[in-house]
Computed example of a mutant assay.
Amino acid sequence: MLKIDKLTKAFGANKAVDSVSLDFDRPMMIGIIGASGAGKSTLLRMLNRLENATSGSITFDGRDVTALHGADKRRWQRDCAMIFQQFNLVPRMDVVSNVLHGTLNRRSTLATMFNLYPSEDIHRAIDILDRLGIAGHAAKRAEALSGGQQQRVAIARAIMQDPQIVLADEPIASLDPMNAQIVMDDLRRIHDEDGRMVIANLHTLDTARRYCDRVVGMRAGRVVFDGTPEQLTTGVARDIYGADASFSEAATSTSIDALNAATSTPVPVA
């Protein structure tokens, strides 16, 4: 279904992504983990064609994504929706209009200029917001919402595109644990209920284990782990992050229980 073959992105002498090969034969929820600078975001940006590959290829259902240009490239970006860490909403615009922006790449220039939307698109946008539990905020400005609510608006905008693949670049990095759980629950439901492939860049091991069917670990631009959540042991995680025996998963956890346990542990007095 999705095949990545020796994909490389070089910035001068530095290879942000270095000969990555991955093969996904069916829609699943995939977590990509690794330290900052491992190449996770660059990989997703190449999948969405926001970045061009230096070499290698991306193939989806037999179509060479890396060779697409113009209208074909824009159609691919509709089929492969992107959710960003910083939401990328229009702050002063109401929520439902932000969601309707998911239809921009299939509307005429005139309709876009005058902000004209068919009634069926408006109803669909509200239905998606309702599915994500935020339809009551449809008329509010996006800037009036909390971070977790804004990220759900961004998810709704992505689903409005009716994509086959949803890419989420650090979707919970700026959220508190409760909102992080809500957003990850939503992404998992989108996979389970819609049958869409979801690929999410994640920093936290507990999140990858809990929500993903498959986990890919990256280090210095290369894939150093590709397996099931059960195979993601603490020892494997140390290798992915280049950490020593002092590495603690609790320090990177988004679990409310884990955070409570970590903060309630007595600190020994020297």
Results as ranks from 00 to 15, higher is better:
83 I>A: 11
84 F>G: 02
84 F>V: 05
84 F>Q: 12
84 F>E: 15
85 Q>N: 01
85 Q>W: 10
87 F>D: 01
88 N>K: 15
88 N>F: 04
88 N>T: 05
88 N>P: 09
89 L>K: 00
91 P>V: 02
91 P>K: 02
91 P>G: 03
93 M>Q: 07
93 M>P: 09
93 M>C: 05
93 M>N: 04
93 M>T: 11
93 M>E: 15
93 M>H: 03
94 D>F: 04
94 D>V: 07
94 D>M: 11
94 D>S: 07
95 V>A: 05
95 V>K: 05
96 V>L: 14
97 S>K: 10
97 S>L: 13
98 N>C: 02
98 N>G: 01
98 N>D: 02
98 N>R: 00
99 V>K: 02
100 L>V: 12
100 L>R: 06
100 L>N: 09
101 H>T: 12
102 G>S: 13
102 G>T: 13
103 T>H: 09
104 L>Q: 05
104 L>C: 09
104 L>W: 06
105 N>D: 15
105 N>W: 09
105 N>T: 11
106 R>L: 14
106 R>G: 12
106 R>E: 15
107 R>E: 00
107 R>L: 01
107 R>G: 00
108 S>N: 05
108 S>I: 01
108 S>E: 03
109 T>A: 11
111 A>N: 07
112 T>E: 06
112 T>D: 03
113 M>Y: 00
114 F>G: 07
114 F>I: 09
114 F>D: 08
115 N>M: 06
116 L>D: 14
117 Y>I: 10
117 Y>H: 13
118 P>C: 06
118 P>T: 11
118 P>V: 08
118 P>S: 12
119 S>A: 12
119 S>E: 08
119 S>L: 07
119 S>P: 06
119 S>F: 03
120 E>R: 15
120 E>H: 15
121 D>N: 14
122 I>G: 09
122 I>L: 06
123 H>M: 10
124 R>S: 06
124 R>N: 14
124 R>K: 14
125 A>N: 08
125 A>F: 09
126 I>N: 07
127 D>N: 12
127 D>M: 14
127 D>Q: 12
127 D>A: 15
127 D>K: 14
127 D>C: 08
128 I>M: 09
128 I>H: 04
128 I>F: 05
129 L>I: 08
129 L>G: 11
130 D>N: 14
130 D>H: 10
130 D>E: 11
131 R>F: 04
131 R>E: 00
131 R>K: 14
131 R>G: 01
131 R>M: 04
131 R>H: 06
131 R>L: 04
132 L>I: 12
132 L>G: 02
132 L>H: 05
132 L>N: 04
132 L>V: 10
133 G>T: 02
133 G>N: 04
133 G>V: 02
134 I>R: 04
135 A>W: 06
135 A>I: 10
136 G>M: 04
137 H>T: 06
137 H>D: 11
138 A>C: 13
138 A>K: 07
138 A>F: 10
138 A>I: 11
